[in-house]
Simulated assay, not measured.
Amino acid sequence: MTWDALLDEWALIEADLHQVYGIDAESGVLHDRTWRWLRLRIMGLLSTECRTNRRFNPPESGQKRGR
């Protein structure tokens, strides 16, 4: 997985930032934060039950993910 691949899914990331962390990306908060701050949160989404995680870590065939 590359940052290009991740950022191609920005709509999922943006929705998950709001759902998981309460971050409204349209509020301008990203202008006040460092790349490191955003990177850590995006990486956190990859280990949280959310859209971004399901996109990049789909369940194995025949298995369902629990909530």
Score class of each variant (00 low, 15 high):
A5K: 15
E60S: 08
L7V: 01
T2W: 07
G28T: 10
L46S: 04
R55I: 00
G28R: 13
R55A: 15
P58Q: 05
C50F: 05
H31G: 08
W35V: 12
S61C: 08
R41V: 00
D24C: 03
A25E: 11
L17K: 07
I13Y: 09
G22A: 09
S27E: 04
I23R: 01
W37N: 02
N53R: 14
V29T: 11
A15L: 09
W3L: 08
H18W: 11
G66C: 06
T48R: 11
I13E: 04
I23Q: 01
M43A: 08
K64S: 15
R36V: 07
S47P: 00
A15V: 06
W37A: 05
D16Q: 06
E9M: 00
L7N: 12
H18P: 00
K64H: 10
E49S: 13
E14F: 03
I42T: 05
S47C: 11
T52F: 12
G66I: 11
L7Y: 14
R41A: 06
L7E: 08
E9F: 00
W10M: 00
G28Y: 10
W35P: 05
I42N: 02
C50S: 12
W37M: 06
Q63E: 14
F56Y: 10
P59C: 13
G22V: 02
D4F: 11
A5N: 14
L46I: 01
C50P: 09
I13R: 01
R67F: 07
L7F: 11
F56I: 03
L46A: 09
D4H: 08
